[in-house]
């Protein structure tokens, strides 16, 4: 009879990634580089928001962008053309998220000595990216009005890991059954610390508040 030996492991599958992420964060701290992980569902307006924001900030901060997608380089090209900001495309090779190791590989392609802020546009998805710490200083997400104000209830983990929630496409509020107040309450239930900023990337309304938040964040990261 074949004897079976049991080797106990008892280890979270995410433990290694969390270690990688923590050491990446420390390196970024030493270099004075702020990394923002921006997440959302596909089509919420991540790239449009980014372009607006970069145009407000590019004279104040030295910025680079990493676009993560399963395939194509349309976002990286679009951002570079619209803003002139350095933008690289990362391919996840079919994976639905980036982890800390993939993020590090992306950062290796940037001139970090001459960068204050790196914005990582994660794969459009409200489930998987929330599970994997990328090593970013902060997580932000965009929730667009057509998606509904009940999203924090349906995707609790995403909202609980985000420090900032941008509510985008406020120009279409009159046409949707979306209440900003209900949305704030639903976010608060999942994460009382998260800040909510309503924006409209198309008209630019509210984007300055996001830009100001970023400037403060980068300043604090470099000096504290």
């Amino acid at each position: 009879m074949d004897e079976v030996k049991i080797i106990e492991i008892k280890k979270s599958v995410f433990a290694d990634n969390e270690q990688d992420a923590a050491s990446l964060r420390k390196e970024l701290k030493d270099k004075g580089v702020y990394l923002l992980n921006l997440m959302s569902s596909p089509g919420s307006g991540k790239t449009t928001t980014l372009i607006r924001t970069l145009n407000l900030l590019k004279d104040k901060l030295r910025i680079a962008v990493m676009e993560a997608d399963i395939d194509s380089d349309v976002d990286a090209v679009k951002v570079k053309e619209a803003t002139g900001v350095d933008s690289i495309q990362l391919h996840t090779g079919g994976m639905c998220h980036l982890d800390a190791e993939m993020t590090r590989q992306g950062l290796d392609n940037l001139d970090l000595a001459r960068t204050d802020l790196v914005i990582l546009e994660n794969v459009g998805n409200l489930v998987c990216p929330a599970e994997f710490d990328t090593g970013a200083v902060r997580n932000a997400m965009i929730l667009s009005v057509p998606e509904g104000d009940d999203k924090p209830l349906k995707y609790p983990l995403m909202f609980s890991v985000c420090d900032l929630v941008l509510v985008n496409k406020t120009d279409v509020l009159p046409y949707f059954d979306f209440s900003l107040e209900r949305c704030r309450e639903n976010v608060r239930l999942r994460n009382p610390r998260a800040r909510v900023i309503p924006i409209c990337a198309k008209t630019g309304e509210g984007v300055d508040a996001f830009a100001d938040w970023l400037v403060d964040e980068v300043e604090n990261w470099k000096n504290c």
Partner: peptide
């Protein structure tokens, strides 16, 4: 919320451990 590897099983005859 666990996603944990609890243990692995190894056949002793196959591995001679």
């Amino acid at each position: 919320n666990e996603v944990e590897i609890k243990e692995i099983e190894v056949s002793e005859t196959l591995n001679n451990v």
